[in-house]
Every structure is written in structure tokens, then in C-alpha cells.
Simulated scan of single mutants.
Amino acid sequence: MNKEDVSFEIFPPDFVLEPYHVFRKNALANRNRTESQEVDHDMDILYQFWSHFLVRNFNAQMYNEFRSLALDDDFSTRNASTGLHRLIQFYGASLSRNSVMPDQVVRDLVDLIRDEATTRAEHVAFYLLRSAWRSGSLDPRNREKIDSVLDAHMTAELEK
């Protein structure tokens, strides 16, 4: 299929189509040039991509990069929350999907909820899980996985 065969009318005239690996490389290079508390536009697009793509096409290496950049680099070091919000968006989409979540994602979600309880005023991930927990929309297999890594106090909080 040629570029001429595809209608690009839905994209702005200055839209440039780039392969993932090129876009990722450029976004990561540009993020090092932005100030603390800010996320470069390309980095935000990369976070958006990861938050949607990984729900249906889980890749542990890509997920680990997403999580590390969002939490360790941007949120903890740079005090920028865009990546964290996209990561929570990914967890929410994973909770609402009728497929089994990878064990690593379940553990990381519960760890994030524990971290929220001790370090942040906002408990977005906790409320997201509690909503899915209570509504019955959570796949029973995921509920069982999550329940296996929760402590009694957290389970009681979810069921309040």
C-alpha cells in the first residue's frame, strides 16, 4: 500500500508519520531538554500511546519503560505528573477489560495504591480499583489475582 492509497484527510497538514522506534528515540531525547514539572508534547504522546497500546498488546519491556519513566523519572525526580496520570489510565483500562492482567501489572498497581496511601493526598489508583471492585465489572480472574496480593486492611478499604 502506498501513501497515496491512504486518505490522510483526518490528519492536520503538518502531520508527519514516523515509525515507533524513531518517535520514541526523539521523544526521549527531547524530554531531557524540558524543565522540571513539564512534559514535552512528544513525551505526552508517547505516554498516551503506551497507555492505550499496552492494554491490548502487553509487552513487558515496553511496560517497564513506561512505568519507570512515568514514576521514577518524571514523577519522583522531575515532579511532573503527566506520565503518572497516563499510567493510572492504563491501569483503569486494564481493570475494565475482560482479559487476565499480567501478574506484574497487578503487583505494580497494588504497590502504587500502597504508595498513594503513604505519600500522596490524591488516591486516584485506589478509587479506580475500588470502583471496579465494587461494580462487579472486574474480571473474576483479575479480582482473584489482586486479592492475592492485598493485605487485610486494603481489602477492607476496598469493600467499605
Rank of each mutant, 00 (worst) to 15 (best):
N142I: 05
H21R: 09
D42T: 12
H85K: 06
W133V: 05
L129V: 10
I146M: 06
G83W: 10
E18P: 03
V106Y: 01
M62T: 09
N26Y: 11
A29Y: 06
S137V: 15
A156N: 05
V22G: 00
E144N: 04
W50D: 03
L109M: 15
D151W: 03
N98M: 02
A70F: 01
T77Y: 13
K25Y: 08
L28A: 07
L150A: 05
P19W: 00
Y63R: 10
D5Y: 08
A125E: 06
V55H: 07
A60C: 03
S36V: 05
N30M: 01
I45T: 15
T82H: 10
T34H: 13
I146A: 09
H41N: 06
L46K: 03
A125F: 03
R31E: 15
R56W: 00
D115Y: 13
R107K: 15
L150K: 09
F58Q: 01
S51Q: 04
L84T: 15
D115A: 07
R120Y: 13
D74Y: 08
T155V: 10
F23I: 09
S96D: 14
P19H: 05
T119D: 08
D5N: 11
E38N: 10
N79A: 11
Y20T: 10
R67E: 05
E157Q: 15
I45A: 15
D111F: 09
F15H: 02
